[in-house]
Amino acid sequence: MSANLKRSNQPIFWLLFGAGGMLSALLGPMLVFITGIAIPLGLIFSPETMSYSHMHAFAHHWIGAGFIWVIVSLFLWHAGHRIFHSLHDVGIHAGTLARIICYGIPLLATVLAARSLIPSLI
């Protein structure tokens, strides 16, 4: 077989995709409900729950900072990888542009989120 046996770099992206997929399956629905529906509508939770002082303190604790960072970046790595393959599914073949957009945005968000969170920890 004239197969190209060059090793694929997909394991990196596949692992990030899987981690993000699992995390969004486990926590996604409730997170959307809390931040996007319950808090804005004043349901269930105390109005102070997502106040500036609360969230500021949350992001200044390493657990809170880690949680935000992992959620934002892994959700995007999951989505980027899936969309990258979906583009191929609809006939837009995995070109450099598709790669830059689908993996570049998650990478950028990962760095940006870390840069926003790390100063608050130091």
């Binding site: 500036y52 992001a59 934002v72 959700f75 995007l76 989505a79 899936r82 979906s86 599914d89 989120a113």
Partner: peptide, 21 residues
């Protein structure tokens, strides 16, 4: 597979929130 667009949208909303914070 299309659910990925919604997962991405939510992550971007949170990302904006983080920057605003």
């Amino acid at each position: 597979e299309g659910s990925a667009f919604f997962v991405a949208a939510y992550a971007l909303i949170l990302m904006v929130g983080l920057l605003r914070l």
